[in-house]
Every structure is written in structure tokens, then in C-alpha cells.
Amino acid sequence: RDHELAGLAQDDDGVTAAFADGAVLRCRYLVAADGAHSTVRSLLGAAFPGQAGTSTVVAADVRLDGAGASLSHTWKEDGHWAALFPLGSDPQGRPLRRLVLGGPDHALPRETPVTEDEVRRGLDTVFGTRIRLLGLRYARRITNASRQVEEYRHGRVFLAGDAAHVHLPLGAQGMNTGMQDALNLGWKLGAAVHGWAPKDLLDTYHAERHPAGAAVLRNVRAQSLLMDWAGTRDPEVLAAR
């Protein structure tokens, strides 16, 4: 995290990564697992088609007090909603929850900072006095953007996880898809490095994982459509839900 990737070049024998501080790294293969805003993907000029985000929600790691703070998914008639999920503990051993807030009050540009006051008001709007905010550890806005690279392999460079596919983070599907990318690619790279991989083995990474990622994106798009992002009372959406 202390190094900024500034350049990337590859040849028949390997990949050279150049960093902003002047450091240079040479490797036989490079895996880009650098997230949704992947620098490697940008340096490659890899096509990243899909759908731009049409709305935003708030995701926050919080400490809470009150009944129902362990697991909840609550909708209100005015389009405001909240979801709560267990998230382990903070360094002091206190329980954390992942809170997701949606609705008209939170449909702001992704770059807009999330304040503690917004989170507190969001909880009050949905839960009233049942749940109280004790502490806010982290918060950001996420969108329902849905994109996937056209190619997971670019010569000796491979894209994995959010660098290869992004979508609304529902049900940890992004995390699990990224882990499956790594599992699929890891042993194949090991085989290539140790000299026992068949000639086309590394090509099977894209062939196997791109369809899997596309299926997840289709599923999440359907889930996103059924979510009441802005208080819609569309009869077809309500019937599908």
C-alpha cells in the first residue's frame, strides 16, 4: 500500500512494474488484484464495458446498541431501508455491524462524504429508537454500477477480483467470486512457473472465470432491479419482489 504503480511493460519473458518512487519489480507473471479502480487495468487499456451506476447507497461499519442490532433487513413505505449484518469485532473486542442505508436521503453522488450525522439520521428514519449508533468506524457510498473486463488475460498479466468485475455488493458475491478467481488462477500459475503446465492452461482462466463472473453480474443486476432504491411503487417491481 505504500507504493504507487506508475508503469507496466511486458515481453516474452516477463513483466516489469515501475513505481512512482523509482522502484522497479521484475516478475514472470503479474496478477492485478488491485480493486474496482484498478491501476493495472488502466495501464493495460483493458476494455471495461457495462452499466454505469444509477443510484447510490451508504455502507458503514458501525457499533450499535438496541434490539435487532445483530441481523435485520427493514423496508419502509417511503422508500427508506436498512440492512444490518454481523461483522466480527473491532480491536477492542466490541461487536461490529455492516450497515447499508438506502432511499432518497442517501441517493447522493458517490464522491459525497458520509457523515456520522447522516448515518444516525438514517438509523432513526428506519428503526426509530430501537437501535442507537455508538460508533462509526468506516463509511462510504457504493453504486449499482455493473462492469466486467472483456479479457481476463493480457499476455503475462491477469485481472482478478474487483479489477475484473464490479457490481453492487450483495450477499458477499463479489468477495466469493474474487476468491474463486484466485483459486482458479493460482494453481495454474504455479504449474506454469514450475514447468509442468500444458501449453494452453493459462488461457483456461479466462475461459472458465469470465462466464462465471458474467453470471454473477446478471444475478446482481436482477437483485438490484428488485430493490426499492428510491421508493418506487412500480407494480411490476413489487410483484416480482
Rank of each mutant, 00 (worst) to 15 (best):
L84N: 02
G93I: 02
R153H: 05
G190Q: 09
V114D: 09
Y138W: 14
L133E: 00
H80Y: 06
G135E: 13
M179W: 14
R121Y: 10
L202F: 11
V114H: 07
R156H: 10
Q173E: 15
L87K: 14
R121M: 13
F158K: 00
L133T: 00
A192N: 07
W81Q: 04
T143R: 07
G135M: 01
W196N: 13
G93R: 05
G88Q: 09
E111A: 15
G195R: 09
F158H: 00
V114T: 09
R121E: 15
D181W: 00
R137A: 15
P95G: 07
R132K: 15
D90C: 09
L84H: 04
A191E: 10
G174T: 01
A163M: 06
F85T: 13
R98I: 05
L168D: 01
L133H: 00
A164G: 04
G195Y: 07
D105K: 03
E118H: 01
A164C: 07
L134V: 08
E116W: 12
L133Y: 00
G186T: 11
R137C: 13
G195E: 06
S89N: 14
P113T: 08
E150Q: 14
V149W: 00
H80I: 05
A139E: 10
R110F: 02
G102V: 07
A145L: 10
